[in-house]
Design a protein around this nucleic acid. Structure first.
Lengths: 197, 197
DNA sequence: AGGCTCATGTAACCGGTTACATGATTAT
DNA sequence: ATAATCATGTAACCGGTTACATGAGCCT
């Protein structure tokens, strides 16, 4: 398997804990870990077929009477091997780049005027704050995180949450500093105008 | 044009300053702004054809005698309109997610032992520090940044650099805190072992 | 002759997104 | 009835990456 096929490795990772259906996995990928890796259900179902074709998972149809039937997927030994290989040779480079269309947008925002730029950063701050309010609520309804007996798991999940929180804080700090610099710039411009008169 | 086609908008953005060849653009996208948006030359050439087809740029072949000939691209009015539209309706959501295969890898690292996890974070810190040493050197040889007369441009380019620096600092802080927590965890485990004896 | 910079592409692939489609079962 | 939850997909598309290919002109 290639470098960064992270959805498939994510699926394998979750199947390490439990047999799951595509629907179960979709719920997980759209719960609190969606900050790390969001996935469309369509993509998950495709990837499950893909993993099955590769022999990394097996599926079993479960007949249900209170709900529609479902396919339970189970990770195979080959799948576990693949997962551990991915887990051990961590690719750090993915975090080096900040490849980001918003930053590209900011890069060119000198084309607009100061007022427009300030408005952007104000809007950004509002958005980030709103998202950071929503997040803890979303985190409550995940019983998955309590399902593991291994305290080392919980620690690493916390590391991911820590990253998210730090990232939020950092972005707010950054935007506020940008605003300050814009205001300083504005002041200098104004005083220049005055001295020209 | 759709939501986040950022390479094409980046190209339009740079063409706002100057006529450029694909080769020129490739140099820029692989200079200091590669932290924001890296691009393969193959992709740039494709995108230029694409933009031309859409009427956002025009090309002119320049016959050169000391070097191979080249195609100079110039942004059209229609291209400028498209660029400003993109510039004004900024999409903030792209920065909300930390969609990141490394973080996904950390998420599952509870499957390994403490030593392996600590090694990961040590390696991560080393990598980030190495990259942050390389970066300022790379930034020196960009005369593009001096080409603009507009001080508001320079300010926004600084904002992007600021983001990169803050992000680097944040990641280092995060990794160090993770290491600390891992060491604390290790101590607790050891003391448990002792009390069991 | 060999390596560097300058210069431009093609083709195959890939992981992911968007939009759309279907249908069972339960609760109101 | 109808909305909500459970459950599984298909098809088209898209932006981007990887690998490969070519060749002019300069410097040593």
């Amino acid at each position: 398997m290639r470098k960064n096929m992270s959805l498939s490795h994510g699926i394998l990772g979750f199947l390490m804990y439990n047999k799951m259906s595509g629907y179960d996995l979709a719920k997980i990928f759209n719960s609190s870990i969606k900050m790390i890796w969001y996935a469309q259900n369509s993509h998950i179902y495709l990837e499950l077929k893909n993993l099955q074709k590769k022999g990394y998972v097996t599926s079993e149809e479960i007949i249900q009477h209170d709900k529609p039937n479902k396919n339970l997927y189970e990770i195979t030994q080959s799948g576990k091997d693949e997962f551990y290989t991915w887990l051990c040779k961590t690719d750090f480079s993915s975090m080096n780049m900040v490849k980001n269309s918003l930053l590209m947008n900011i890069f060119f925002t000198g084309n607009l005027d100061i007022a427009a730029s300030k408005a952007k950063f104000h809007q950004f701050i509002e958005e980030v704050q709103q998202k950071s309010i929503d997040l803890p609520n979303a985190q409550n309804d995940i019983d998955f995180y309590k399902s593991s007996q291994n305290p080392l798991d919980a620690l690493h999940w916390q590391f991911c949450a820590d990253f998210g929180n730090k990232y939020t804080q950092m972005r707010l700090e950054w935007a506020k500093e940008c605003l300050q610099k814009l205001e300083q710039f504005e002041q200098v411009e104004k005083s220049k105008e005055k001295s020209e008169i």
